[in-house]
Design a protein around this nucleic acid. Structure first.
Lengths: 251, 251
DNA sequence: CGGGACATTGAGTGGCATCAAGGCGTGTGG
DNA sequence: CCACACGCCTTGATGCCACTCAATGTCCCG
């Protein structure tokens, strides 16, 4: 390798040069600290479609930030039954579940060719020790995971099938917007099975709902490409109907 | 106040003297560091039954560790619909959801008179800065939250009503055991409504399931006191039936 | 002892899962 | 290049589990 190539690699994997750095590490970290962080990050890793980044039960070594592509995280019980926990888009972190027990509690698999920043935890911790702003930031990022799962729980606990799909698409559109992608054209890298599973439904129901929402003029669905024609109506469907039932007050 | 009273208070709020310190801060923190942690903890706080520790939307100031009693955490949408997210027992932490946005994303309410350690976050952070072991430990505790929510999600996504109640009771028994309480005698501080809501069910269903499990000789239910007569059968019900359906493989 | 909240029990219904075909796009091999 | 086959998705018919509605029972507190 020539020096030029090395420099390019160096630049490419630099956090300060990363288009996503405001997503994974929004604020309060100055240039000098960013360089220290860079030093802790191993060369970025690439995962092919269908391949696992890590599997449930693997020993914990690193956190990962998605650079490009999409992953799904899921747990699988002894009977082989799967529950999809979430989909990780660029700028989002995976692996947080493993901090508690030093073993991954879920698996992460690429839905399309994806690249990631690997953050070896031991090194990350030592940098964090010297950079208070980074420590704060890391906890914020982890906390976001907690909040995201809470939303997922509300969806599973209180929403109808149609509200769930609407919420899913709405949330996805929001995350697309944050990535400066067009939030009205969703290209879904996950299968209908994976969407259904994530929503706690079966694939037939999801398919019917896509159809119904297309008939209602809200979406234009074409295989993996979903265009949102009426974002307003989609938003309405997220928290619609059901005035009080299913337990408005829990006490 | 006399000096003696002050000393007693000092002792009572000390982490090193706390019967739960192995739960909230399991390992790797020596005596000197514990004293530094003590210094960061504000006098413990007490919350009456039905009163809120904090509410959704409140500004974030502190994390809390339950010392005694039980809390519920829940979110409430604009329509007043509630989703119970979890129940916090002694040794467990609440408030983690607020780290991301400096605002509490859920409410926490005491189900019975409870006392808590308040950990003002600003001070906690500064101690954490100087005590690497504590930093690691704090992240482990937060990660536990993530893992607990993942289990909740699996329950909501893939389990039948009966499996959900069984899993709930089973998990509660395990947490009781960790607290050296008798795991075969569960005293439920939460109402049937709250249990139902947590499980994504309605109260009638929960009531019927208690009855069914009592008929099956698994439980002896008497209002808020549930005795587990057959822990083995209870454990079986947690992951029983449903060989492959509802989406064994998600791809 | 009466009122109110919480809990139980029963009958009926509806939403979503299940079962079963059939279409469509993609990739592969002849 | 076309034909076939496979996986994925869609569409339809049926059934069941859990929700809904309604009434009664039980405990707690004033």
């Amino acid at each position: 390798m020539s020096a030029t190539v090395l420099d390019l690699n160096q630049l490419r994997r630099s956090c300060s040069a990363c288009a996503l750095h405001e997503l994974c590490l929004p604020t309060g970290i100055d240039r000098a600290d960013l360089e220290r962080l860079d030093a802790a990050i191993r060369d970025k890793r690439s995962v092919e479609r269908g391949k696992a980044l890590f599997r449930q039960g693997d020993p914990f070594r690193s956190l990962y930030v998605v650079r490009s592509g999409t992953l799904k995280t899921y747990v699988e019980d002894e009977a082989g039954s799967v529950q999809v926990l979430g989909f990780a888009l660029p700028g989002e972190i995976v692996g947080v579940d493993a901090l508690a027990g030093d073993v991954h509690q879920c698996s992460a698999e690429a839905l399309e060719r994806s690249s990631l920043c690997e953050l070896p935890f031991a090194q990350l911790e030592s940098v964090v020790r010297d950079v208070p702003a980074l420590q704060h930031q890391l906890m914020r990022v982890i906390s976001r995971e907690v909040v995201a799962e809470q939303s997922h729980l509300v969806m599973m606990g209180k929403q109808q099938a149609q509200e769930r799909l609407a919420s899913f698409l709405h949330s996805l559109a929001g995350r697309y917007a944050r990535l400066s992608r067009d939030p009205s054209v969703l290209t879904l890298p996950m299968s209908r099975y994976e969407i259904a599973n994530y929503l706690g439904l079966v694939v037939e129901t999801v398919s019917r709902l896509f159809g119904r929402m297309e008939d209602a003029g809200i979406l234009a669905v074409n295989r993996k490409v979903v265009r949102v024609l009426r974002p307003d109506l989609l938003a309405e469907l997220c928290g619609s109907q059901r005035s009080s039932s299913h337990g408005g007050e829990a006490h």
